[in-house]
Computed example of a mutant assay.
Amino acid sequence: MSHTAHIRSHRKPRRSASTIAMRAGVASGVLGTLAVATAAGSANAAEPVTQTLELPVLTGDLAAQVAQSAQATQQAAANYQLQAERDAAAAAAAKEAKKDLADAKAEATKKAEAARKAAAERATRAAERTVLSTSASDSSSSSSSSTSNATGSAAAVIAFVKAQIGDAYVSGGTGPNSWDCSGLMQTAFKQVGVDLPRVSQDQSTFGTQVSLDNLQPGDILYWGSAGSAYHVAVYVGDGMFVGAQNPSTGVAEKPLSYDPPTGAVRVL
């Protein structure tokens, strides 16, 4: 026996022909598959890829919604403009009202001051009237030349009309601060209990007619014919008379020469 007989051979065992054939078939199939895949990949790589995007179709409903949205936007803009105009108008009105209020306050203050002054003047005039009436009554008892009787009625009438000097002439006025001619006479003689008629025509025939050359203080002077006189006043002595003359002079004391009367009546 050879000395190498017990050592395994270093040669690879021989494969059977069937095994080799099977493996060759598998390899051939794999290579075929790869070739097909490669060819397919090359073909695909050669053709560009195209992607189609479909846009939404503008349907009738969508168009209506767009139109409605636009209309709503326009309406909102119009409302905003209207509100802005209203706010501007309100601001202007508030400013004007504030100015009117300030003017009204100033006017009210002015009127209040004028009323206060007028009240003070009336109070002063009333006090003067009281003093004059008292003085006239006191003097009437000691001076018969200025009155027509012992009661001093003429002096009281004269004191009253003189206290009204400066008052306004107003047609139909019967006092206390504005008079017409017959209204002043009626109120003056009422102070001594004589109830004269209201108008000058009737006053010119009330009492006894006297000559202008024989006048006494307290006589009623008239202008025009007796029974149709258009003006009356009272004679206060010393060639003077007091009457509510006209809107220009108001109640004033004038000489007989200023406007000579037509006649006179005596009621005291």
Rank of each mutant, 00 (worst) to 15 (best):
residue 21 A to H: 05
residue 53 L to K: 01
residue 132 L to M: 12
residue 131 V to Y: 06
residue 220 I to M: 04
residue 246 N to M: 00
residue 180 D to M: 09
residue 6 H to Q: 02
residue 215 L to I: 12
residue 54 E to N: 08
residue 50 T to K: 10
residue 5 A to L: 12
residue 21 A to P: 04
residue 155 A to Q: 06
residue 238 D to A: 14
residue 240 M to R: 14
residue 31 L to Y: 10
residue 51 Q to K: 12
residue 155 A to Y: 00
residue 51 Q to H: 11
residue 36 V to E: 09
residue 250 G to W: 06
residue 114 A to F: 05
residue 145 S to H: 05
residue 169 Y to C: 09
residue 181 C to H: 04
residue 211 S to W: 01
residue 114 A to Q: 13
residue 125 R to Y: 08
residue 228 S to L: 02
residue 215 L to W: 03
residue 29 G to S: 15
residue 153 S to D: 15
residue 75 Q to F: 07
residue 261 P to D: 02
residue 255 P to S: 15
residue 196 L to W: 02
residue 41 G to H: 12
residue 169 Y to E: 09
residue 139 S to Y: 11
residue 163 A to G: 15
residue 26 V to C: 11
residue 43 A to M: 13
residue 27 A to F: 14
residue 151 T to F: 03
residue 212 L to W: 06
residue 68 Q to K: 14
residue 178 S to W: 08
residue 246 N to Y: 07
residue 76 A to H: 11
residue 201 Q to H: 10
residue 231 H to P: 02
residue 148 S to N: 11
residue 120 A to K: 04
residue 207 G to I: 02
residue 215 L to Y: 03
residue 144 S to F: 08
residue 260 P to H: 01
residue 265 V to I: 15
residue 93 A to P: 07
residue 231 H to L: 03
residue 161 V to L: 01
residue 128 E to R: 15
residue 195 D to T: 12
residue 130 T to V: 14
residue 139 S to H: 07
residue 184 L to G: 06
residue 263 G to D: 01
residue 92 A to G: 10
